[in-house]
Design a protein around this nucleic acid. Structure first.
Lengths: 252, 252
DNA sequence: TTGTTACACAGGTCATACCTTTGCTGATTT
DNA sequence: AAATCAGCAAAGGTATGACCTGTGTAACAA
């Protein structure tokens, strides 16, 4: 019934299409225009205050006014631009952007401003995940507590074996499950962004070849505290995990 | 140059239009349709899985296909719906909504599910504001540090005088300034939501007639720690403020 | 110089038409 | 009877053109 929309933030592991179907699903035209424009704005190529007209868009992207308008409306709803009669479409000041929109985050991660986005996201993780761990300790279901424990054990196994790829997947699963177990739907919505941060860490080689034993220990501690319903311990154990992340990223 | 879009989350104090212009600025048609539909979905009136067609929208709201499509696109970009040929427009599962979109938050606060939204937001505050305070202690500018201290002093004055209205305004200014000083643009974007939570607390009478002395003390402590650049103290002092908020809201 | 008016520019909204995908139905085949 | 396939039609996707309505700007008048 419900389906994830194509424009959502991609998690690290993508659903692959039917193996029989070799063709890449061509994204709808309006999404391509949206992505192109969004990236242009986010990258600074179209600076704040820059004025466009619908006609510009139509010509630049070879689309009809309908699509130009569609795109503009979505961008406007993200507060990346505003439109006024007789003026045109104006790029907004970045201060006003809806920086929690997954599309926007995706564009920023694809831009040259990548590093800033990562540190913002990391600081957000530092803030949210401990509280999420505490929430999970209070409100997670029995199955979730079990799965969390199992994932922590798997993390140790994969970590000690040095299987970074699989470790990453399990790590994402761990943090994602935690966010989903904490009973706060706003925290849930951050799972894609957390996954993005985690996988970038591995891809960029910021990860030690083998995860540090303290990190493995801390994940187990979080899982155990959540399983035991000990919110305070879960929170501080998660804090330990993120302390390591913070130092790894060179944040203060 | 840059202007705040009409559909943004309203802060507690609205800019009033020219005094000479008595008429309320009539919101654009597409915004009215968007709000109506958004509220209908968020309130559960249009349940997840419910199917609509563009024609339904055209007739229900007496608008052209263009506007029906505009609205649909924006809703789709918020992941409230998805649209497929031959099927129509389908309301998404709430799990997939972009719950950080200010419009969505506004709709949820206007719905009967208000309480859930408030507790989610409060938990988010509990997570973010201490880290924001620490960030401000590290990165705020000199002016911001001064203003923060001044606001804390004003909070004490207004609080002891029992001027709840003015106290609320100063309180919002304090927390908003903190979020803006912390150097994380994602935290900045939460200012409207924090303001919303704060004003609702006062409006709903959840606020003691006079703010508790501990709260005033804690605000001053935050300001002082930020002014002194003491991140750890700022963080824990902010934690104290939010502990009080938590108990006031009956959260665990 | 300053205030006013008129114009044209650009989005806002509407109506219509045609294209493309796809769920469904029913006939055909095994 | 079950499985497969073809064709229809429903619904969004895209394009076009027209007209309406604010609103900068510049020409003009005081």
């Amino acid at each position: 019934m419900a389906q994830r929309e194509a424009s959502q933030m991609s998690t690290a592991t993508e659903d692959h299409a039917d193996a029989t179907d070799g063709e890449a699903a061509v994204p709808a035209l309006h999404l391509r225009v949206l992505d192109a424009l969004g990236e242009a704005i986010v990258s600074g190529e179209l600076a704040p205050g820059r004025r466009l007209t619908l006609e510009d868009l139509q010509q630049h992207y070879n689309v009809s006014r309908t699509l130009a308008r569609d795109t503009m409306r979505v961008l406007e709803s993200m507060n990346l631009v505003y439109s006024r009669r007789r003026v045109g479409i104006v790029v907004q000041d970045p201060e006003l952007w809806n920086v929690f929109d997954p599309k926007l985050v995706r564009w920023r991660l694809a831009s040259s401003r990548r590093a800033e986005q990562y540190s913002s996201l990391t600081e957000l993780r530092i803030a949210v995940e401990p509280i999420a761990a505490a929430g999970a300790a209070r409100r997670a279901g029995a199955t979730e507590r079990r799965q969390l424990t199992a994932l922590a054990a798997e993390l140790r196994r994969l970590g000690e074996a040095g299987e970074l790829e699989e470790f990453l997947k399990a790590d994402i699963a761990f943090h994602s499950l935690l966010l989903h177990s904490c009973g706060n739907e706003m925290f849930k919505a951050l799972d894609g962004m957390v996954a993005e941060v985690l996988s970038s860490r591995t891809k960029q080689g910021l990860m030690p070849f083998k995860p540090r034993p303290e990190a493995l220990q801390a994940h187990e501690a979080v899982a155990a505290a959540v399983a035991a319903g000990d919110a305070g311990t879960a929170e501080s154990a998660m804090h330990h995990i993120l302390d390591e992340v913070r130092t790894a990223m060179g944040l203060p």
